[in-house]
Computed example of a mutant assay.
Amino acid sequence: MSTEELVYTVEDGIATLLLNRPDQRNAFTLTMIDAWERALRTAGADPEVKVVVLTGAGEGFCAGGDMDTVGDTGASGPLEQKNTLHLRIHKVARALEDLDKPVIAAINGVAVGAGLDMALMCDIRFAARSARMSEGYIRLGLVPGDGGAYFLPRLVGQSKALELLLGGEFVDAEEALRIGMVNRVVDDADLLGETYAFAAKIAARPSLPVGMIKRAVRSSDRLDMRTSLDLISSHMAVVMSTPEAQQAIDAVRSAVVRDKGRSAAATPPEGTEARRT
């Protein structure tokens, strides 16, 4: 799956997608997009992969589309521009939508425009303290072409999303955390360590309920309450029949019985203290 522009590796149940154009702040080309989608599809089909981490090489996460390739608005007509976005670049969003395995973005530097959108469409976002983020499209007279108008309001609310999309200003990591754009902010040197530690925790969980939890949460904003409860009751019935769940439930029951036994042994029979006096 690896190419010069995107490096794909798997270790200890964690697949890493490393955007690898550090001299261009990892601005993506169409070749990188094709490799990106293939890597996500491969991770989804690989039973050894439990969780995916996305990050960038060097000092930037992703500066959006490379203006010399995908950003050349004068190179083609409106239909060609639409197809480049919808049939090529949007493949990543569709692949992520199909992926039941959690995806964590480790935002190690600047994330701008479509580069920020690529982080927003992940499930969880950890940011380095020096990271800076901006939708930025409006400064070029453009609309948020890679899902910013869809993903951002779901994280920060419509009003705040409009402020960021229409203003186009950068926000730092602490502000991104405050408004709910990212989950955690950590020191730059600790970003990958914190990200992989959390990824390892997920990788150690049973895969079936992890995927079902992601699916239930992702679908919750499209379902009414009754349908969502019906879906989760089906998920619960399935996972409770698995050996992993049965073993875990039995372990909890055994612990409860042991605790009750210890409590009973430590409590003197009723009236004992009175007889002693």
Rank of each mutant, 00 (worst) to 15 (best):
R262F: 15
S263K: 06
A255C: 08
S254N: 11
S220L: 07
R276L: 04
S241A: 09
S219C: 14
M236N: 05
A216I: 04
V256A: 14
Q246M: 05
R222I: 05
P209C: 01
V238W: 04
T227G: 14
P243F: 12
L208C: 01
A251E: 08
M240G: 00
S219P: 04
D230L: 09
S254H: 09
R262Y: 14
A266Y: 15
A216W: 03
T242C: 04
D221N: 03
V239T: 15
D221L: 03
D230E: 12
P269R: 07
D259Y: 14
G261S: 15
V217C: 14
S228M: 13
T272L: 15
S207R: 11
A251G: 02
G271Q: 00
R276K: 15
L231Y: 00
S263V: 09
A237M: 08
V252G: 05
I249T: 13
T242Q: 03
P243N: 12
D250C: 07
T277C: 06
P269S: 11
A216T: 02
A245P: 13
A245Y: 10
L208M: 12
A266F: 02
R275M: 07
A274D: 15
S219T: 15
A245N: 14
A264I: 05
R218C: 05
R258P: 02
P206L: 00
A266Q: 12
D224F: 05
P243S: 13
D221T: 03
D250G: 13
V256W: 06
A251T: 07
R262L: 13
V256Q: 06
I232A: 10
A216Q: 02
K260T: 05
A264Y: 04
S241Q: 12
R262V: 14
L231A: 01
T277N: 14
V256S: 08
K214Y: 02
R218F: 01
S233N: 09
L208T: 07
V239P: 00
A265Y: 10
T272R: 12
I249L: 13
L229M: 15
S234G: 15
Q246P: 00
